[in-house]
Design a protein around this nucleic acid. Structure first.
Length: 491
RNA sequence: GCUCCGAUGGUGUAGUCAGGCCAAGCAUUCCGGCCUUUCGAGCCGAUGACUCGGGUUCAAAUCCCGGUCGGAGCACCA
């Protein structure tokens, strides 16, 4: 018997067993291993600017697990490179996280912990795990490539201790000295070999000014912080894969328990401006109005356009934590957003590129449109048009309607194109005809700004004027209204 | 070049660790239809995928070996 034949028999004789229950498709993150009680997790952005959509993945993933298992989520601002800090970021990052619904229980700023890093370093120097160098950078780098240790590697800890004190005192200028973490000089990956743990940076720090000139590199500060803050699980991008390997040396030397690490793949976010340097330059030159310019991919901009923060959560949960590189899908993201907002979004009429039309109605007309088609109880939008009224009609649709074609003015009446004009008709079409939105004569001008930089000017129906919320402009898309402006969300 | 990581329809993801219920699920996009006043929502339908080659096995998306392709790292950035 072939499969088809079998199926036929089963269908006829035992129809019940063929009914497969539909698999409940639920986006769920995989369970974490080694959870004892709760989890302690962190997100660690550098304060170079506010968060963008890419950062939201790290925030959501960590937050989700803390919500699942209990425990706490730490925000650690990694500002150990004074040259790459935007002072506003200290304020903006927590605001972004709050908007996302990410529950930060504790905030740690690394530049406040410099003395702690110094004392940890001194301890590890005296234990023989770190050493100070004075070589120039190129030479140190070249020797490592050749798997040749520098002479200071085996110097007595007291020598390195003294050098480190001298570094802290401000004796050296940028690049003249460093403190190195001893790993394996013949490690197959050259970057893992004896990595730099502290370097000189005389750039003024927005928070601590010129108080410090010796800063830990992230691999050092992250290691000791992850331990002392009690991290149990760490989730971050695959760009940190090698860093994780480097950081494990610190854990091993100190006999600290190593957290569970997870790395998620790279996401390419198409058609989106995310680079802090590009944005900053654009703001400076006046090209962008600010961090929340809707042409940008910052969370502030996405908020301004009217996205629901839950959408970010749903999207990143469905993306999971795997290591493959992927392309961000605005289609899927927007679809998820629609799913959330559609039910609460009122419908209104907007006419882009409006052309005024005398529709020559012989009798008074009353429009009767619902605020929401699935929820009639929310009420109606009604307008009364006197005989021989004028309305606004979209120029673009005008072009697509053939001479003599019958259409319907949405929730108003039937009309027909005659001599290139839209006029009232009392014909009742039984077939489907085009349904076009319109706006009454007393509508208001509005400009709708799109993320691609384009602007649609048109007329907004009177009942929508003054709304400050996301609405659906019928046949146009979801728009966040704001005074006589609107920000386009998505279709 | 070296080190590491990855590969399921156009896109995203489930399944891979513990091979059989996978003749591969879900979402999205595109296309067609219905709902006879949205291009939104909803409903129905259609197209579309296990990177390639070997091997193990009664049985491979799943395990092993090799190739190909893609990515990341190779910083005194994070």
């Amino acid at each position: 018997m072939t499969r088809d034949q079998i199926e036929e028999v089963v269908n006829a004789e035992y129809p019940d067993i063929l009914i497969k229950e539909k698999k409940e498709e639920k986006h769920r993150l995989p369970d974490l291993p080694n959870v004892k009680g709760g989890v302690v997790m962190r997100m660690a952005p550098s304060p170079s600017g506010p968060l963008h959509i890419g950062h939201s993945r790290m925030a959501i993933l960590n937050d989700e697990y803390v919500k699942r298992y209990g425990g706490k989520l730490i925000l650690r601002i990694e500002d150990t490179n004074p040259a790459n800090i935007d002072p506003d970021a200290y304020r903006l990052i927590p605001e972004d996280l709050k908007w996302l619904g990410v529950n930060v229980e504790e905030t740690v700023i690394q530049s406040s912990r410099m003395e702690f890093y110094y004392s940890e370093a001194k301890r590890m120097i005296s234990e023989g795990y770190m050493y100070a160098i004075e070589e120039n950078q190129q030479e140190f780098h070249d020797l490592k490539l050749k798997k040749v240790p520098v002479k200071e590697r085996d110097a007595d800890p007291s020598y390195s201790l003294e050098k480190f004190d001298r570094m802290i005192s401000g004796y050296y200028s940028d690049g003249q000295a460093a403190l190195v973490m001893k790993t394996e000089i013949d490690h197959p990956n050259p970057s893992v070999r004896d990595w730099i743990a502290f370097r000189i940076n005389t750039h003024e720090h927005p928070r601590t000014g010129n108080r410090y000139v010796v800063y830990p590199t992230m691999n050092f500060s992250v290691s000791v912080d992850d331990h002392y803050l009690g991290l149990t699980h760490v989730i971050r991008g695959i760009d940190h894969l090698v860093n994780t390997e480097k950081q494990k040396y610190v854990f091993k030397y100190n006999k600290w328990e190593i957290p569970e690490y997870f790395h998620y793949g790279f996401i390419t976010i198409p058609d989106t401006i995310l680079k802090t340097t590009v944005i900053k330059e654009g703001i400076r030159s006046g090209k962008y109005s600010g961090w929340d310019d809707i042409r940008l991919g910052t969370l502030m901009a996405l908020k301004k356009r009217g996205y629901n923060p839950e959408t970010f959560r749903n999207y990143w949960i469905s993306s999971g934590m795997n290591k493959n590189n992927a392309t961000f899908s605005w289609d899927i993201f927007n679809s998820m957003d629609r799913e959330i907002i559609d039910n609460d979004t009122e419908r209104y009429s907007f006419v882009p590129e409006p052309v005024i039309q005398h529709i020559k109605n012989p009798v008074e007309l009353k429009s009767h449109a619902m605020l929401h088609p699935q929820n009639p109880e929310r009420g109606f939008r009604e307008y009364t048009l006197k005989p021989d009224a004028s309305i606004y009609f979209p120029a673009r649709d005008m072009l697509e309607i053939a001479e003599g074609e019958t259409i319907r003015l949405k929730d108003l009446c039937v009309a027909r194109k005659e001599n290139g004009r839209i006029v009232y008709s009392d014909y009742d079409p039984s077939e489907r005809v085009k349904i076009i939105q319109w706006a009454p004569e007393n509508s208001s001008e509005i400009s709708i700004f799109h993320p691609d930089g384009s602007v649609d000017n048109g007329m907004l129906e009177p009942l929508a004027v003054g709304k400050n919320s996301v609405v659906q402009l019928e046949r146009y898309g979801y728009v966040n209204l704001n005074g006589n402006k609107g920000y386009f969300l998505h279709r």
